[in-house]
């Protein structure tokens, strides 16, 4: 496959970025998207120019490090996969592919396609955990948890924090991420004691960091590689309202 790539290049956080056009030839359709970029980078290094920087780690769709905005969609044209799991067979020979970094005020570009997602860590630090040591693994069914709750909590916990929801949202809102983190704990008895404080603190942090407001557009749900559902956002809204109305914290 021969492809034309238009890639966002930016020296550092303060520099003014621009699109550069590159040609790559003889790309195998079995290549993953990141491998295709690796091939491009080898060519660039051979020519003694700077390789294109992009985040990646496990390359098996579970770490949440990779994330590119490809032709108008975070993580590219496939549903429910991360960029590293996207393969070149999804493109046609001669295609032009535009690759951009996540765009959001709380996610500043560090270099080229790499963005700083510390904002997500800051939100987690506000209470996305159980703050006491819970000891060893308890006996099975020592605490009864309905199967449905366990399943939903597990689905919410599948969030890998890649930031595609923020990248996809027209308002750069982090509601899907925050709601997944709130939900996974709110659904389980271990998370309940701190639920009211948690939801208020995490939402406050999210607002403070400059993420946009949710307008129920659901682009986040459509683009989430882990297919986190919008029902989590509803659950967070519910938790937030209950906390404001009932809790003294």
């Amino acid at each position: 496959m021969n492809l034309t790539l238009k890639i966002w290049r930016q020296e550092n956080a303060r520099a003014k970025g621009r699109f550069e056009t590159y040609k790559v030839e003889n790309i195998s359709p079995d290549c993953s998207f990141l491998e295709m970029l690796d091939i491009l980078n080898e060519q660039l290094v051979d020519k003694l120019s700077h390789p294109v920087c992009f985040d990646n780690d496990c390359r098996e769709g579970i770490c949440g490090m990779c994330g590119l905005y490809i032709n108008g969609r975070p993580h590219g044209p496939d549903d429910g996969v991360t960029t590293c799991q996207l393969h070149m067979r999804r493109f046609k020979d001669g295609d032009t592919i535009v690759i951009e970094p996540w765009r959001a005020r709380p996610f500043p570009v560090i270099r080229d396609l790499v963005v700083d997602r510390t904002a997500f860590d800051k939100i987690i630090q506000e209470g996305g955990y159980v703050s006491v040591t819970t000891g060893g693994v308890p006996d099975g069914n020592a605490i009864p948890i309905p199967k449905k709750n366990a399943d939903e909590a597990m689905d919410a916990a599948a969030c890998i924090g890649c930031g595609a929801c923020v990248a996809a949202c027209k308002n750069a809102s982090a509601m899907l991420f925050v709601s997944a983190k709130v939900s996974q704990l709110a659904l389980l008895p271990q998370g309940r004691p701190e639920a009211a404080r948690r939801v208020q603190a995490m939402v406050a942090k999210m607002d403070e960091l400059g993420f946009g407001n949710c307008t129920n557009t659901y682009a986040c749900e459509a683009e989430c590689p882990k297919q986190i559902k919008r029902s989590n956002i509803a659950r967070m809204n519910r938790e937030f309202l209950c906390a404001k109305v009932c809790s003294e914290e």
């Binding site: 975070p74 765009r103 959001a104 750069a172 659901y218 459509a222």
Partner: peptide, 16 residues
């Protein structure tokens, strides 16, 4: 304000 620099390619995500 939450997205000072926009995307070059308009979003193709499914929305409500």
């Amino acid at each position: 304000k939450a997205r000072p620099v926009g995307y070059a390619v308009p979003s193709k995500s499914k929305t409500h």
